[in-house]
Design a protein around this nucleic acid. Sequence first.
DNA 1: TCCGCAATGAACTAATTGGTACATTAGCGT
DNA 2: ACGCTAATGTACCAATTAGTTCATTGCGGA
Lengths: 228, 228
Amino acid sequence: MSSAAQQLPDEPVPSVAAVPDPPRQRDAERTRAEILDVATQEFADRGYAGARVDEIAAKTSTTKRMIYYYFGGKEQLYVAVLERAYKRIRSLEQGLDVEHLDPVQAVRELAGLTFDHHEAHPEFIRLVSIENIHRAEHIARSEALSGLANPVLDVLGRILERGWDAGLFRGDVDALDVHQVISSFCVFRTANRHTWRALFGRDMLDAERREHQRRMLGDLVVAHLTAR
Amino acid sequence: MSSAAQQLPDEPVPSVAAVPDPPRQRDAERTRAEILDVATQEFADRGYAGARVDEIAAKTSTTKRMIYYYFGGKEQLYVAVLERAYKRIRSLEQGLDVEHLDPVQAVRELAGLTFDHHEAHPEFIRLVSIENIHRAEHIARSEALSGLANPVLDVLGRILERGWDAGLFRGDVDALDVHQVISSFCVFRTANRHTWRALFGRDMLDAERREHQRRMLGDLVVAHLTAR
DNA sequence: TCCGCAATGAACTAATTGGTACATTAGCGT
DNA sequence: ACGCTAATGTACCAATTAGTTCATTGCGGA
């Protein structure tokens, strides 16, 4: 692999003045980002042990040398992948604004956002599964990740307060409980999609069933919170 | 590792008539089972790619040779592990009898059984996670596993029928939907235990929270089914 | 009792894989 | 102009790892 702008065999190589469209050479940030992109895909696809440094390098426009130059090793690369993935998720979560809705509509909206979000980022869910197989040892060691608060929890906390004040919600489930219920549902359908289909013949991510599932999650959470 | 009946260093080795309590030599079934036991542990612990055939062999009282003799290779061993694990789960599921309970109590009982069951078999949950990382390709290829019906679904189906007939349950969720909700909750708290604790500081499997979580699941499912 | 085969063990191998040594070059600051 | 360093590429290595070869032995049946 020599250059990003590969030529088909027959095409004449443009002679002198062929300037590569993006100023392509020696761009540390671009190289770093490209490695992270490929590594994210590979780790999510094959797990930590299953991913191959050589394979990651090969799918890059640079070489294995650069992985060690920028990240130090396979494990540090994996941690960098995790950190970036979580960072992205968090920044997306920042954007949710449901303060203006009534508590019931607000939880329903929040659940729907999580639903959409997890469905749109299967590779993130896979990374989380993989990290759990490793007992979250990398997250625990990463200062950038461990204990970093989740914006969703604050939002949920405020919604619950309003729901309690209005006498709408039961008092014996806290924000983390509700988040757990929502996460369970949303993570499960992506994380366990394949065994589920193999065992039950139903694809939980089937587009035809999507609306039914989304409504089901909303109903589930609202019914739970407003029960009794 | 030479024998199942290990001696402490100081104890004198019993001389001639020491018949090994279980007739220990040349027992194909025992060897097979021991390999499967160790392999289950190792695969669940480190994933398919992360598990080492040498390590599995070392933790056995036999040698690597036997793994290849009985199973053929790493992948076939892994499939054998999966098949046995699923078989055990199914046989346990056979035992549930909730026909005598009213529909609401029956779903609550069923959910509780799944809850207990998954909590008691974390290594099974891990294997399922691992198999999902591999897109269930091994399950799909295994005749013993793919498409084999789950007894839980029949039980749930009958409970739902009774609930519908009694006008207790909503009609727009089927048995598989309910099973999905229950599985989501039960699988998630085990499968994602570690990242959850690392990120939120709460152990979903903490014994102190166990009853709360168990009740929460029951309430969740019942509230959902009886809503409106 | 003894033969044939299932069952077992020790050592070996070919390929893979994470990681490195060494050489090179682009381009920024002066 | 130019030199110094960040950035990059090639080739290599040592360790690991799945799988095998070949020899051996216990045991059930004839």
